[in-house]
Every structure is written in structure tokens, then in C-alpha cells.
Design a protein around this nucleic acid. Structure first.
Length: 373
DNA sequence: CATCCGTGGAT
DNA sequence: TATCCAAGGAT
């Protein structure tokens, strides 16, 4: 059994002098060529928290316009804590991983209500907030509160793995502990936030996953994998599973009151967002009926109480790939002559010019475009 | 600990 | 088109 400390000692053999040289080289480069980003103009914890939540598994370029808009809509932590769910999710619509938005608001409410507006200032305490795990807590603690703790994100895994030829599988939770300790020993205690952000900038410029340019990297002399010609072997990670294909019918149901939208469940895929009702093609297997569309009417009537005749359309099916699922949606239409009461159905009739006011996922935006364009 | 949870860009 | 993966966290 090899302890964390032993593994760290195995990979990190630099002298204190070399570690200091690494810090200086990295930060001199960062001061000159670090990216200028909207969330780097101050150290407001509220600003840092929003940016870090948005940046979880999401690229900088994608986040920038969402960050600007979000801050304009919710300028303070109090504004966010008091926001309606519709306003909140609309500000996040299209960004993905929607539980992040609800976690962010819950964290704001925790700060306002549980902490009386006094921010927790250490990584350990920050992890008590919703949606904030080891990476995000370290990022906020180091950037906003100058705590010398390494923020181990995908960039840090890759940069440290290549620098020190660390061959641990980064998808294994235990590996994080080694990288965390390596980072904690390398981080500059005087400028921890900038050190962490410099590692990220390095990882997104000279030390990218696919086409690194380590020959021109400011820290190339410290990069053991580059010197040994092994840098593309790092980081080590197990492959991800392929998305599972799932076929749906997407129900485009129209009435004089508009189109029928359904609020997605509290948990699971696209939770709390609004979409056309979806029914798995597979769900028709056990249903009696002469045709697929007749079976569809039976299943939908059970859910909604609405008796409808569904019609095939000429519209090409929509395919939308998520991390774990690949949806193919066949669009069918139905017309309701009068808008009926839908008390027990988690839905609403929406006039076409009001659809854009609903928080929707990208897959629904694709359906809208296919139908209404 | 393994799996679930979105989206867009690069190749 | 298929695949990878990017400032991860919750369960």
C-alpha cells in the first residue's frame, strides 16, 4: 500500500530552489500574457463564484457572454438569492448542466441567510455551499481570499501530469488527492490565485490536450514529459462510455391557446426546463393498438387526459447528443380545437410569440427551429 | 466508487 | 460522422 505522501514524493522530486524558479517563471509569463477575462477585473467572491460555476466543464469562450448577461441580471448576491426560477433558468438556458444554476442560487441563499452575507473564506468552508466541490472551493478561496490551495481542474491535471510524468488515472477519485498535494506544494503562497489561473492559462494555450506547443511554453524546462518525448501519454484517463441511443416521439400539440409545453421533472435530464411532451418509442411496445400513432394516443391520454389524433409530419427527425444519451426525436403533430383545462398536467399552452420566454434546453430550441422556421 | 448530468468546438 | 474533451459536482 502506497500512501499519498509516498506517491507525491515519488513524482515531485524538485528542490525548494527549483520550485521557486518554477513559480517565478510561471508568474512572470502570466503577468505578461495571461488572458484578460471579465471575471479577472476584481476579486469579488460573488463574481468569482459565478464564473467558476459557469466554467465547470465549459469552455471560457462559451461562458463569457453568459457571465456578462448573468451579472447584469443579478448584480449582487441578494439579487440572485431572490430571483425567480424562470429568470434564473432563462439566464442559464443553452449553457447546459442546469443543476449548476439551481445550485448557484442555493449557494447565494446560503450566504445571505445562513452566513448573514459574511462569506466563508476557506476552501473547507466553501465546500458547504451547494454546487461547490473541491475544485471550485479552492478556486474561490485562492482567487478571492488568497488561500494557498491548488485548484485542480482538467488543466491542472494535464499540466502537472505532463510536468512530472504522473501516470495516475485522473478519472479515479484517489488520484485527485495526489494531484492536490502536488499542487499545494508547487503553488506560490504569495500569489495563490494568480498561480492557479496561470496553470489554467498554460493548459489552454501551450499545454492543450490535443496539439500542445510545449517547445514554446514558458515552463518548457520544467516539463519532463516534453523533454522525454512522452507528453501525449499524459494525462492517463479511462475512456468514457458511448452515448446510449434513445428514440422519442416529440409531441407538437397546437390549440387556439398556443403550443403545449411540459415542465421536466425535478430530477434527471433537463430538470425544471420546458419542452414538448416526449414519449419513448419503446413505451409503445406493451400497448395495444393498430398503429404506432394510435398507441401513442393511448399512452399520451393516460398521462394527460387529452384525447388526440397524432399525425406524422414531413419534418426530418431531430438528433441531439448528450454526454450519456443520443436522442432521436420523431416529431408528430396534433390539433386541439379548444384549449381545455390541464390542471393535473405539468404543462401550459404557450402562444408562439411567447415561447422564447420559457427556459428551454438546446434540444427544444432545435425542435422549435425545425417546426417554426 | 461509478454513473449521471449539456453543450459546443476541434479533429 | 465519430470521438474527444473542456475552469466538476451530486448521488
Amino acid at each position: 500500500m502506497t500512501s499519498i505522501a509516498q506517491q507525491v514524493a515519488q513524482f515531485l522530486t524538485w528542490s525548494p530552489i527549483k520550485i521557486n524558479q518554477f513559480r517565478q517563471t510561471l508568474l512572470v509569463w502570466y503577468d505578461q500574457e495571461g488572458r484578460q477575462l471579465p471575471w479577472r477585473v476584481d476579486q469579488e467572491p460573488y463574481h468569482i463564484m459565478i464564473s467558476e460555476l459557469m466554467l465547470q466543464q465549459t469552455q471560457v469562450q462559451t461562458v463569457i457572454p453568459y457571465y456578462q448577461n448573468f451579472l447584469a441580471k443579478f448584480p449582487t448576491v441578494d439579487d440572485l438569492a431572490a430571483a425567480t426560477e424562470t429568470d434564473l433558468l432563462n439566464a442559464w438556458s443553452g449553457l447546459g448542466y442546469y443543476s449548476r444554476a439551481r445550485n448557484l442560487q442555493k449557494a447565494a441563499q446560503q450566504i445571505v441567510n445562513d452566513y448573514q452575507g459574511q462569506w466563508p473564506q476557506t476552501a473547507v468552508e466553501l465546500q458547504n455551499l451547494a454546487g461547490i466541490g473541491p475544485y471550485t472551493a479552492s478556486a474561490i478561496a485562492s482567487i478571492a481570499f488568497n488561500e494557498p490551495v491548488a485548484a485542480i481542474d482538467g488543466n491542472a491535471f494535464r499540466v502537472f501530469a505532463r510536468l512530472l510524468e504522473i501516470d495516475l488515472d485522473i478519472t479515479k477519485p484517489k488520484s485527485r488527492l495526489v494531484f492536490q498535494e502536488v499542487g499545494n506544494r508547487l503553488i506560490d503562497p504569495k500569489r495563490p490565485g494568480e498561480f492557479n489561473q496561470a496553470i489554467m492559462d498554460l493548459g489552454s494555450s501551450y499545454m492543450t490536450a490535443k496539439n500542445p506547443d510545449s517547445a514554446h511554453s514558458p515552463i518548457r524546462e520544467f516539463n519532463q514529459s516534453w523533454q522525454n518525448g512522452t507528453e501525449l501519454n499524459y494525462p492517463v484517463r479511462t475512456k468514457k462510455a458511448k452515448p446510449v441511443p434513445i428514440d422519442y416521439y416529440g409531441l407538437a400539440i397546437h390549440s387556439p391557446a398556443g403550443w403545449l409545453f411540459e415542465k421536466r421533472p425535478e430530477k434527471g435530464m433537463l430538470a425544471h426546463l420546458w419542452m414538448f411532451p416526449l414519449i419513448k418509442v419503446e413505451a409503445l411496445d406493451d400497448v395495444s393498438g393498430d398503429s404506432a400513432l394510435e398507441k401513442l394516443a393511448v399512452v399520451f391520454a393516460e398521462q394527460s387526459g387529452l384525447e388526440l389524433n397524432f399525425q406524422p409530419t414531413e419534418l426530418k427527425p431531430i438528433t441531439h447528443t448528450f454526454t450519456h444519451q443520443k436522442w432521436q426525436i420523431t416529431i408528430v403533430t396534433a390539433e386541439l380545437k379548444t384549449a381545455e383545462n390541464l390542471e393535473f398536467f405539468p404543462g401550459q399552452w404557450v402562444p408562439q410569440d411567447k415561447i422564447a420566454e420559457l427556459p428551454m434546453p438546446t434540444v427544444q430550441a432545435k425542435l422549435n427551429q425545425r417546426l417554426f422556421k
